[in-house]
Deep mutational scan, measured.
Amino acid sequence: TFTSIVTTNPDFGGFEFYVEAGQQFDDSAYEEAYGVSVPSAVVEEMNAKAAQLKDGEWLNVSHE
């Protein structure tokens, strides 16, 4: 299960995956970082959410 939350205070020191406002979700980078295949429906969902981000916001993507 993939989830996401919007934050204005990303923790770059941890093992977190963020999408910056104005960027798209990079499923290849996510797969490389976590060894998890990302279904195309999830990629579309995360890109739709990322498109709604305002300046200074980040989308924190995770999975269980």
Rank of each mutant, 00 (worst) to 15 (best):
V61C: 04
F2I: 05
P10E: 02
E44F: 08
I5C: 14
A48W: 12
H63A: 03
S4M: 08
D11T: 12
E57I: 01
F2R: 00
T8R: 13
Y30F: 13
T3S: 11
K49T: 09
A51E: 10
V43D: 02
F12V: 06
T8I: 09
A21Q: 08
H63E: 02
N47K: 05
Y30S: 01
V38K: 01
A29G: 07
E57H: 06
S4Q: 03
V36H: 06
V38W: 00
Q52H: 08
A48I: 13
N60D: 03
A51S: 10
F15P: 13
K49S: 09
G35H: 09
A21N: 07
K49A: 14
E44Y: 07
N47E: 05
D55G: 08
V43S: 06
T8M: 11
Q23F: 10
A29F: 07
G35V: 02
Y34G: 01
H63V: 07
F17G: 01
E20N: 07
L59Q: 01
W58F: 09
T1L: 11
F12M: 08
V61D: 00
E32T: 10
S40T: 12
I5K: 12
T1P: 08
Y30N: 01
V38I: 08
A50M: 03
N9H: 11
S37Y: 10
Q23T: 12
K54T: 08
N60R: 15
E45Q: 09
E32I: 13
N9A: 11
A48T: 09
Q24I: 11
G35I: 02
S28C: 14
I5E: 10
F25I: 03
S62I: 13
G22D: 02
V36G: 01
W58L: 00
T3N: 10
T3P: 02
A48M: 13
V61R: 00
S62G: 07
T8V: 09
V6F: 04
S40F: 11
D55W: 11
S40V: 13
Y30I: 01
K49Y: 10
S28F: 12
E16G: 15
S37F: 10
T8D: 08
T8H: 08
Q23M: 11
E20D: 05
L59N: 02
W58M: 10
H63G: 03
A41W: 15
N9Q: 12
F12P: 06
E31P: 00
T7N: 03
D27A: 15
V42Y: 04
F12W: 12
A21Y: 12
E31N: 09
A33Q: 15
E57F: 05
N60M: 15
V42G: 01
Q52L: 13
G22M: 05
N60Q: 15
E57T: 05
I5A: 11
V36E: 03
N9P: 00
N47C: 07
A21C: 09
F12I: 07
T1D: 07
G14V: 07
Y34A: 03
A41N: 12
Q24H: 11
A41V: 09
K54P: 01
M46L: 15
Q52I: 08
P39W: 02
V6D: 01
M46K: 00
G56P: 01
E44V: 10
I5P: 02
A51Y: 06
L53I: 02
Y30P: 01
E31W: 12
G22N: 06
S40Q: 14
G56L: 02
P39S: 05
V6P: 03
Q23V: 06
Q52A: 13
E31V: 08
Y30H: 01
V6A: 03
N47S: 07
L53A: 00
A29S: 08
I5N: 10
A41P: 07
L59G: 02
V43Q: 06
S37E: 10
D55N: 12
P10G: 01
D11C: 14
F12S: 06
S37C: 12
D26E: 05
A48Q: 13
E32R: 15
F17C: 07
S62N: 07
A29D: 05
L53Q: 01
S37R: 15
K54N: 10
F15H: 14
G13N: 14
A29V: 08
S40M: 11
D26K: 06
V43T: 09
G13H: 11
V6Y: 03
A21L: 05
F15I: 12
F17S: 02
E57M: 06
K49C: 11
G14L: 10
F17K: 00
G35K: 07
D11S: 09
K49D: 07
G14Q: 08
D26L: 05
V6T: 07
G56H: 06
S40A: 14
E57V: 05
E16F: 15
I5L: 12
T1H: 13
P39T: 04
F12R: 07
G56N: 07
E32W: 11
V36K: 04
A21W: 10
V61I: 13
K54V: 08
V42A: 05
E57C: 07
F2P: 01
W58V: 03
E44H: 10
V61T: 02
E16N: 15
F25P: 00
A51P: 05
T7Q: 04
L53E: 02
S62H: 12
D55C: 11
W58R: 01
F25T: 00
D11F: 11
N9M: 11
N60F: 14
V43M: 06
V38P: 06
L59P: 01
A50D: 07
G35A: 06
D27I: 15
Q52Y: 06
D27F: 15
Y34W: 08
L59V: 01
V61A: 01
G35L: 05
A41H: 14
G13I: 08
A41R: 11
P10K: 05
S28L: 14
G13T: 14
V42C: 07
F25A: 03
G14C: 12
T1A: 11
D26I: 08
M46E: 04
V42Q: 03
V61K: 00
K54S: 09
G14W: 07
Q52V: 09
F17N: 01
P10F: 02
T3V: 10
T8F: 06
Y30E: 00
F12T: 06
W58D: 02
D27L: 13
S28I: 14
S4V: 09
W58S: 03
D27V: 15
E57P: 01
P10S: 02
E45R: 04
A21G: 05
Y18H: 06
F25W: 03
L53M: 06
M46C: 07
V38Y: 00
P39A: 04
D11V: 12
F15N: 15
V36R: 00
N9G: 06
S37D: 06
E44A: 13
V19H: 01
V43K: 09
V6S: 05
S40K: 14
A51L: 09
E45D: 08
E20L: 05
S62Y: 13
N47V: 04
N47Q: 07
A21M: 09
Q23R: 09
S28G: 10
A29K: 12
T3F: 14
E16A: 13
E64D: 11
